[in-house]
Design a protein around this nucleic acid. Sequence first.
DNA 1: ATTAATATAGGACGGTCGTCCGAATTATTT
DNA 2: AAATAATTCGGACGACCGTCCTATATTAAT
Lengths: 191, 191
Amino acid sequence: MSSKTNQSELILDAAYKCVSEKGYANISLRDIAKEANVALSQLHYYFGSKKKLLQEIIKRMIGKYTIELEKQIKKSQSDKKDISNVFNFIKEALERNPELFKILFDLSSLALRSDSFKLMLSDLFDHLSGVIKECIDESSSIVDEFKDFSSSTLSRLILGSVLGVAFEYTLDANKNEDILDSLDALSVIFQ
Amino acid sequence: MSSKTNQSELILDAAYKCVSEKGYANISLRDIAKEANVALSQLHYYFGSKKKLLQEIIKRMIGKYTIELEKQIKKSQSDKKDISNVFNFIKEALERNPELFKILFDLSSLALRSDSFKLMLSDLFDHLSGVIKECIDESSSIVDEFKDFSSSTLSRLILGSVLGVAFEYTLDANKNEDILDSLDALSVIFQ
DNA sequence: ATTAATATAGGACGGTCGTCCGAATTATTT
DNA sequence: AAATAATTCGGACGACCGTCCTATATTAAT
């Protein structure tokens, strides 16, 4: 029901929508209040400050990320438990849900100057690389040339590569096909 | 000489310093004017608007990037002309000049919502991947498993991986060693 | 039914922001 | 030397911001 919604939830929904559309730097509490059809002062009543509200939105975004990725990994565990699903997940998400990456990269600029935001992002990266590491550890076929590196190092490499390619693609004005192709190349390299 | 400086240059220097210290989102024209010891109104006299001033700073940052990277590549061309220098360049820059990456990732959040900034960043990425592509094309030893992909795809992959790992490292709260190690792994993979 | 607690609304506060204007100063040209 | 142009400055403008305060409405407890 849309009538049983408490304002706290309405505000969070509106805030997430505003942030995803206009970015952290370009939204005001008045924007969010208007979007949520709620008095401006209610944002402070429920969340105390703009920063705390932003942190709640980020928790939500991070939850979306991890749940969706784990769903994709789990789904594959019936077939083969390798990491190609990670690449597929990223590729599909890039095409179908680009806003997710926009919010992530937008958050990054906050994390550059704020320890609390940086900590939240670090937790996300730790979690994601942990999921990837499990895939590597459970995989039977490890390429010889990677034997010199630990699975934790490799998982960081894969996470970084995937994020970087997504970064490149999200910020490319021409939507260069080579960038998406390089995700396939990644999949081949790490079988 | 510090007395022969015209205000236009003073302002640019101050703006670059302010942006690199506090980020695009957290600087005001008054900050820059104070840093440059110049009247606030002079910023508009020389640059017209805050956006135009930011664009000048970004041009400068991009110039720094490309010049330094090409210097590193050229330096190596006397020895072997492979791309390991790219990885070394990134690794050294991450440790010695982390602000460079902060400014880059900070700019990215601007580019997410502004076509003009996005275009500037795309040009930078095109240029960087072009440099990498040259390294690949001139390299005699191409690993077999990469034969299926064009050098332009591979160059995009390498650029993305390098950027992504730098992204991971810059935003990691714990300065995880695995992340820097993964740059070495990259170097091994692409010899 | 009365009281207490919670939720909602509207408005005002001090502050900062980008922009712009008019005057004063300096440099250049005639 | 006079006139013109380019530079520099201080200050003001309206707009927007996050925060907070007080009053009203709603709900829960007694």
